[in-house]
Amino acid sequence: MNDFFARIYELGNVFFMEGFSEDLYDNSLYLPVGLVMLISSFIGMLIYYYAIPNPKYDRWYHWFGLIALIAVINAVYAYWTVGSELDIIYAQADSVVPYSIEFFNFATVDFLWTLIACFAVSMIIKWKSKNFRKTPF
């Protein structure tokens, strides 16, 4: 699974960051971030399409607001998890984490992948929704 998420988060060399990406891969940090991204997207969309009873939230901007919120939460989670884990790892080796902007870049990638995951889950599960089957279109 770590390999799978590594491929996704690195997307070939598009989002690969020298040293930082290798640290995430070697310490299996892609796994929790990726799992949280997938599970939260699925649960978030499941709640939207099947638990909200009020059709007044059926506009595309309601849907987009929700997936943006899920993406922000995921980005914060990714930033925080990876940061704290690498802190511990580097502290054990008596050194300082040599990354700064990489955390932000990784959180941004996670944000984008969450948006994509939410969109994909929406397209799969929306058809049986009572009130939101036509959302976002």
Partner: peptide
């Protein structure tokens, strides 16, 4: 009911 007024109406129509 938690959903009310025309929203409830729409919900019934949707169902």
């Amino acid at each position: 009911s938690f959903t009310n007024n025309y929203n409830l109406f729409d919900s019934e129509l949707n169902g």
